[in-house]
Simulated scan of single mutants.
Amino acid sequence: MAGTIGAVSGVALGPKPSRADVPAPSRQGWQAVPAPGSTPAAQLRSIAAAGPRLAWAVGEESLAPQSQQRALAMLWNGSVWTKTDLSHLGHTRLSDVAGVCSAAAWSVGQPVGSGSPLLRWDGTTWREADFPGRGEPDVRLNSVAVGPDRQVWICGSRGGAARLLHGNGRRWRWVDPLPVASVYLYRVVVRSPGEVWVSGDQSNGGGWSGLVARWDGKWTVLPPIAGLRLGIADLHSAGPDDVWAVGTEAGAGGPVGRPGNPALSHWDGTAWTRLEPGFTLGSLTAIAGDARGRAAWISGWNFQDQSRSTYLRRDGETWTVVRGPAGTAPAPYLNDVTSVPGTTGFWSVGMTRPAPYPPTEAYAEHLQA
């Protein structure tokens, strides 16, 4: 894997000017929602919502030294988060989750033994599902998406090549390999039936560049997003000429533990444009669209002010920094953000501190707009 996307810790490099943070509106702001029951250190890496009364969040727990790391899953029932029993599984991490209803929810996780697991929600818990390549040592499933037609798309690798796995729960097939070498995929996104986007990074010899590509029966690979060790953690496509990509540029040099730089890019159908995200040290971890299909919210981490969670909110053609609730976590770090279908609300998840060490706990915030 050329680059990495995830939580980091670092040393202060001194404040730098950026545009003023905008507090979330008092009656329509982000609010922390307890996600109890996990064993520190714990974090939620991904969240998916089927509606206001059903959502899933996954990650990992028990990351303390000399402890056995375990996969973590939470379920939202419209009122509270509850921990899902995974004692029948031996997985150490669930890295992504997607679902549109209780009969069409899927998760992928960290390999245990040979190959990555694919899990399906059975209405009560997560169960392993079969797929071509299951158990093969070189198979990695990194991210999963489910379309409104309940078709499942999974990005990862098989046979040394970046691939997509497509299926409906009964029949599966691997599509043609991505025609780019030395690629690691972080995210798969369904824009419409038959149109799927992926993001990640691509080795460029001296580091890696951001990668975004589209599958619609054939691959279309967009030009690389230039940067010093730049990985694209997530993307949102409103059309072939309106694609947003978010991630972290690790850069080069600096002290040990230096945080990266948040990276925000837009594709207009011709070229990528890098935009100023509003803060200079940290990361952008995920992006979510609104009910109209437009990019709306970005989750991030602002190294220079860790007292509250950090978002970017779409305001017309610009992005504005918005802060989450104060005093709910020591230094919250967000890994993912998603919309709630049928509403104007959003969920985000992560952990209470920016490093996955005790006493870090699983963390969630909700925007009921």
Rank of each mutant, 00 (worst) to 15 (best):
residue 325 P to R: 06
residue 190 V to H: 09
residue 70 R to A: 15
residue 112 V to L: 10
residue 57 A to Q: 09
residue 268 D to H: 06
residue 239 G to E: 03
residue 358 P to I: 00
residue 34 P to A: 15
residue 282 G to E: 07
residue 199 S to D: 02
residue 82 T to F: 10
residue 295 A to P: 01
residue 263 A to Y: 13
residue 17 P to N: 05
residue 271 A to F: 05
residue 120 R to I: 13
residue 20 A to L: 10
residue 297 W to S: 02
residue 249 E to P: 15
residue 255 P to R: 09
residue 344 T to D: 10
residue 27 R to I: 04
residue 197 W to M: 10
residue 241 D to T: 09
residue 287 I to F: 03
residue 166 H to D: 07
residue 317 E to F: 09
residue 299 S to T: 06
residue 264 L to K: 04
residue 316 G to R: 14
residue 19 R to G: 00
residue 136 E to P: 13
residue 28 Q to K: 03
residue 88 H to F: 00
residue 247 G to K: 12
residue 307 S to G: 07
residue 3 G to S: 08
residue 135 G to C: 08
residue 231 G to V: 03
residue 298 I to F: 03
residue 263 A to L: 02
residue 191 R to N: 03
residue 42 A to Y: 07
residue 77 N to S: 13
residue 350 G to I: 03
residue 180 V to D: 03
residue 87 S to L: 02
residue 256 V to F: 11
residue 326 A to P: 01
residue 71 A to S: 14
residue 113 G to R: 12
residue 77 N to H: 14
residue 180 V to K: 12
residue 262 P to D: 00
residue 100 V to E: 01
residue 336 D to R: 06
residue 267 W to H: 04
residue 129 A to Y: 15
residue 126 W to C: 04
residue 92 T to N: 00
residue 238 A to M: 02
residue 124 T to Y: 15
residue 49 A to C: 08
residue 334 L to D: 07
residue 11 V to M: 07
residue 83 K to N: 12
residue 9 S to D: 10
residue 298 I to C: 06
residue 190 V to T: 11
residue 139 V to F: 07
residue 104 A to W: 01
residue 224 P to C: 05
residue 99 G to M: 05
residue 90 G to E: 08
residue 316 G to C: 12
residue 37 G to S: 15
residue 141 L to Q: 10
residue 32 A to T: 13
residue 107 S to D: 15
